[in-house]
Design a protein around this nucleic acid. Structure first.
Lengths: 331, 331
DNA sequence: AACTTTTCTGCAACCGATCTCAGCAACCGA
DNA sequence: TCGGTTGCTGAGATCGGTTGCAGAAAAGTT
């Protein structure tokens, strides 16, 4: 038995379908007794409104696309989880769009969601975002990017403060006595990744260290491999490494292990992201934690804001240090 | 500029909208010149059909829900990735429904997708599936479960052969000289989890070993914690452990590390799933690999089959052993 | 009591497609 | 030349809702 249509409910309740419609979508516009009667009849018939028909007529749906490059990456998975909750709280339904980092796929998803009358979109990029590209694709400014964009770009963003995050990591290592601290960037070409790397350079020099940037090329399994190789071969081996994100940290620790170096025994590592997965890695990963849940909530708020004609905003959140077991005092 | 409607295209091409409709959805029913002309005009206007209107009228959409309990779990993430590709190949669009393991959420998602006229659904459960529950929720038999169900249940399923998988793991460890091999189950209450555990018991006894089942209670971070504790305290300590899934293996290795035991130095561990993430764990995890991509493709095929009135089928795939570095000959 | 205002409900057009049916033209064989 | 096919297109109802408008009923004013 499929759900009855609005006309069937109307007939059963002895009213016109427009009244049934109002009983649900604009309750205050219909007399209380009528409304309650209709609701009751509807409930007893197992009626629920067709979101399709609704969206078709009103040109607005509750679908909110979250565009991510790779759901297999735990960072995006956690983001998806957080955003699902955040969207749900505000009455939206998140639709995950996994692009595999393909621009065409992104465009297709955006077109499709546009056709479904999604009120706005949220994008968590892997590479640098060129807003103009998206504006032409229909959403205009009605989207939020979880990354920084070129200053002056008219698109709302949410990010975590890279400088603070790197400073947190560095200070933690300093306190443990480390003075030679290398950096492995993520391979991602986002502004955020570049910012973290830049922050490392600046802060390292400010603290009188010479920055040591490890080779972070290589994708997937290979990530961290080259960095480990380089680290091992270094004459004056750093005693600690800051990774641009947790996944790189995992790869680095793994590769280091294969080369007989233990973390934190031989070298301390701190990641960036603060993934839950880091709690069950070996060793549990000390990391700069991004407030992912909050980012999700803010992304939805900003999106609603621009969708309602409000101002574009750039929100920068403060990260916290999550100390677990991959760091240790230098001996 | 939003995309034009079918009527605008019809007007521009000088034909009736029904002809435009046919030019796209039933091309052979319209004269070639007319069709080409329409297509050209449509393309020049940037026209694309509204999937909403289409679905509303035909009562069929290309949306395929994949219901998973937790996208943060890399197994489900990889499944989602594989299914997205598999669905795309067949012209469907996967919609990820993350339930956080909540029955209500599952029901809501299924209802919503039903309302969107999804042709069928795919479910990857965390707990045991009771088909009756779903049948009543509209999809009838038009769904596929990525797990075993009670024999006799009229729902198509795809699974990997648990017995073969466990045998693969055990044989690998035997060859390395291990004779005392424990087992840590996943906490999941699926049939598959139970099957793996049962397979372990049976096969261990067949090979003349007494099964040692470690406590696998505890969720999230805690998973593996208890097992590690128990393992360490065991009088006759096993030299190897088979884990019911990779995530548990990660947790176990992590907890073992915190207790000063190294893998594979002190104990060998083999996981079950063969996640890509295992390649960058410390140490890289030896695991029984599920052919996830193939499972995705088969799930779609089975779903299409029952949706077209075809027979319910139970497909069992063979896993392979993926040898990485978490196992080593016993000393 | 008469008039104005407010509240509530019905009517019917509309969103953007699909699809059955009917009509028209061209074609066919006898 | 005519009845019968066949191929192609248009008309219009339909999917399941929303909403501006109009009119009836109820409430408020003087």
């Amino acid at each position: 038995m499929s759900t009855p249509s609005i006309d069937e409910v109307a007939a059963a309740a002895g009213v016109h379908r427009s009244t049934v419609s109002r009983a649900f979508s604009r309750p205050e516009a219909v007399k209380r007794e009528t409304r309650e009667h209709i609701r009751q009849v509807a409930a007893s018939m197992g009626y629920r409104m067709s979101p399709l028909a609704q969206a078709l007529r009103t040109k607005v749906s509750t679908l909110v696309p979250l565009v991510v490059p790779d759901i297999t990456n735990p960072y995006f998975a956690e983001l998806a989880k957080a955003m699902t909750a955040a969207a749900g709280e505000r009455g939206y339904q998140l639709v995950l769009c996994v692009t595999e980092n393909d621009a065409d796929a992104t465009a297709r998803y955006l077109d499709a969601m546009q056709a479904m009358y999604a009120p706005f979109a949220v994008i968590a990029p892997y590479a640098r975002v060129f807003p103009a590209e998206f504006e032409s694709r229909g959403f205009g400014k009605r989207l939020v990017v979880i990354d920084r964009v070129e200053s002056g770009d008219q698109i709302s963003t949410v990010t975590v403060d890279s400088a603070t995050g790197i400073a947190l990591a560095l200070d933690h290592l300093f306190e443990l006595g480390h003075t030679s601290i290398a950096y492995v960037s993520g391979i991602a070409g986002t502004h955020t990744a570049a910012d973290r790397c830049q922050a490392y350079r600046t802060l390292a020099e400010e603290r009188g260290m010479t920055p040591i940037e490890l080779d972070s090329s290589g994708i997937g399994v290979g990530a961290g491999e080259r960095a480990a190789e380089e680290l091992v071969s270094l004459r004056e081996r750093p005693t600690a490494v800051v990774a641009g994100n947790d996944l790189v940290a995992f790869g680095l620790i793994s590769s280091l292990g294969s080369r007989g170096m233990s973390v934190p025994g031989d070298v301390s590592v701190v990641g960036f992201d603060g993934l839950a997965l880091g709690a069950r890695s070996n060793p549990p990963l000390t990391s700069v934690q991004q407030p992912i849940a909050e980012m999700g909530r803010i992304a939805i708020r900003l999106a609603e804001q621009v969708a309602n004609g409000g101002p574009v905003e750039h929100v920068v959140l403060q990260p916290q240090l999550l100390v677990r077991s991959s760091t240790r005092p230098v001996r």
